[in-house]
Design a protein around this nucleic acid. Structure first.
Lengths: 275, 275
DNA sequence: GTCATCGAGTACGCATAGCGTACTCGCGAG
DNA sequence: CTCGCGAGTACGCTATGCGTACTCGATGAC
C-alpha cells in the first residue's frame, strides 16, 4: 500500500494468518469470528478463511461460534527446541542447578530488546507472572538480559540503550543508558550479572553466559530467588560461582573449548529416596 | 487441485508458510533455501518469499545462505498458554507434586491420537527423548493418554483404537483394541491409570483426570518414574492417591465443583533452606 | 407478538497477490 | 576453464484471495 511495507517478496496472507493466531490471548481466549476481525482489523470473510485454514491444519478449533487454540500450536515451538541442540544439552544442567540451589533455573536467549526463556526448571513461584518457555521480559532489567547484552554486537545494544531513558519497573530499575553501559562493562569483567529488584520487587537473580563452539555468547543461564530467601551478598559469594561454573559446563558440552577443569557431562547425583 | 483438498475457504499461502516453518527440525536445523524447497516440495522462489516474510515477522533468521528459527517462534505457544487459564492454575500444583514425589510432574491434553505436554516440572531425565512443553507422544501407550481417552467422546477413541492393531513401542505395549477398551473402562472406575514400560523400557507413570467447571475431562496430570526407583505396586499404593488428589485440587481451582474435602489453592510448604 | 440488532455464513465478480518458468550471477570443485 | 549448483531476479499469467453485499437465524427489547 504505502511504499515497501507491502513490497514484493512479502506474502500478505501469511502475515495475516499469524495476526489471527496471535489475536488469541488472555483477554480473548475464546473469541468469535467478529471479535477476531475487529482485533486484527481484517474483514470478516478474510478472518473466516484464515480460521478454516488454521482449523484444517489443527491449530485452532471452532465450536458454537467461538474459536480457541489447540495444543498443537505448542508443537510449533518444538521445532525451535529440536533445531537448537543447546536446549537439550542444557536440560540436565538446569535440573542439577535447580536441585542444588532449591531455586528455579532458566536459560534464555535474546530476541530484539527482549529476553526469551528457552528452557526452564521451575521450583517455586517467585515472579508475579507465570514464567514459562517462550515468556518474554525486557532485557535491560534482568540479569540474563544484561549478560546477553554485555557480549552482544554493538548494534543490538544500541537498540536497547538507544533511548534517552529506559523504562522502569520498580524504583530500582536502572534507567540511565550510561549507567547501564558501565554495568555491561563490569559484567564482561566479572563474568556474571546480579540484578536485584529491577524488574519486580523482591526478585533477585544471577546470570552467566553460555557460549558456542566459536566462543560467541548464545544464551544466558540464571538462578532466581526472592529477597526473603537470600541477600545479594549470598548470591554473589555462593550462587554466582555455581551459576558461572554450570554455564561453563553447558558451553563445554555444546562444543566450546572451555578452560573449565574436568567439566564433563552431567554426572547426576541423586540426593533423596522416592519420598 | 484434486477435489476439495484445495477447495474454497482455504488459503494456500498460509498452509505453505507453516510447511516451511515446520521444515526446520533436528535433521535440518540450519537449512539452505534449496533444502527447504526440496523438503517442502515448493518452488525455490516460493520458499524464498515465505522466508522473507517470516524474517520480517521475526520468526526466522537468515545468514550466510543458511536459515534458522529465532526464539520468537516460542512466543506463539505462549498464546496457547495465556488463553488457557488451566495451565497457570496447575503450575503450583505441579511444582508441589514434583517436590513431594521427587519425580517429574506433567500436565497434558489430547490432540488427535497424540498426547501433548502443556505444562511440566522436570526433575530427572527418565525418557530417552527430552520431554518439554509441546512434546507429543502416542496416546494409547501412556498413562495420560489412557486417562484422556477414558473420558473422551467415542469418536475420538475410535480414531485411536480404529486400527486392528496398535503400534507397539516395547514388548509390553497393549496393541489389542479390545484389551485397550477394557483398560479404559477400568480407568473410569478406579479414577487413575498406571502404565508400565509400554512406551519405553523402564518408564512408569501414573495419571489422573483434570476436569473443568462442567465436569468434562480437559487434561491429565501425571507423575513419572523409572522401574529402578519404584514398583507398580508402590505407584498404586503411594503415588496414585497423591496424583488423584492433586488432579482434583487442580480441577477445583479451575472451577469444578469438586467433592474433594478441603481442597484449596496451593498452600506452599517450603521444606528446605537455601541450599 | 413484532421489530431491530448482531453475527455467521455465502455468493460473486474483480484485482492482484502470488505463482512458476526461465534467466543471470557468483562460487567452488575438479 | 568448465561445469554444476544454489541464490537471487524478472516477468507475465492466472488462480488465488479479496471485499462488498446479500441471506439467514438467533437474541433481546418493548
Amino acid at each position: 500500500m504505502t511504499k515497501d511495507e507491502n513490497s514484493r517478496d512479502h506474502i500478505q496472507s501469511l502475515e495475516r494468518g499469524f495476526a489471527v493466531l496471535l489475536a488469541f490471548d488472555a483477554e480473548r481466549p475464546n473469541p468469535t469470528l467478529a471479535e477476531l476481525a475487529s482485533a486484527t482489523g481484517l474483514s470478516r470473510p478474510a478472518v473466516r478463511r484464515i480460521l478454516l485454514t488454521l482449523q484444517r491444519l489443527g491449530y485452532v478449533h471452532g465450536e458454537g461460534g467461538r474459536w480457541s487454540l489447540t495444543p498443537r500450536v505448542l508443537s510449533i515451538g518444538q521445532h525451535y527446541s529440536a533445531s537448537h541442540a543447546l536446549i537439550e544439552i542444557a536440560q540436565p544442567h538446569l535440573v542439577r542447578l535447580a536441585e542444588r540451589t532449591s531455586e528455579s533455573a532458566s536459560l534464555a536467549a535474546l530476541d530484539g530488546t527482549d529476553v526469551v526463556y528457552i528452557a526452564r526448571v521451575p521450583v517455586r513461584r517467585i515472579m508475579s507472572i507465570n514464567v514459562s518457555i517462550g515468556t518474554r521480559v525486557p532485557a535491560h532489567a534482568t540479569s540474563m538480559g544484561r549478560v546477553l547484552l554485555a557480549w552482544a554486537p554493538d548494534s543490538v545494544v544500541a537498540d536497547v540503550v538507544g533511548k534517552d531513558r529506559l523504562p522502569a519497573y520498580t524504583r530500582h530499575t536502572i534507567t540511565d543508558p550510561g549507567e547501564l553501559r558501565r554495568g555491561l562493562a563490569q559484567i564482561r569483567q566479572s563474568g556474571y550479572s546480579i540484578v536485584a529488584e529491577e524488574l519486580e520487587d523482591g526478585l533477585l537473580s544471577v546470570a552467566a553466559p553460555v557460549r558456542d563452539r566459536a566462543g560467541t555468547v548464545v544464551a544466558a543461564l540464571a538462578s532466581s530467588t526472592s529477597s526473603g530467601r537470600a541477600t545479594v551478598e549470598q548470591l554473589r559469594s555462593q550462587v554466582a560461582p555455581l551459576v558461572v561454573r554450570t554455564a561453563e559446563q553447558i558451553s563445554a558440552d555444546y562444543g566450546h573449548p572451555a578452560a573449565v577443569g574436568k567439566a564433563t557431562s552431567a554426572v547426576h547425583t541423586p540426593r533423596d529416596g522416592f519420598f
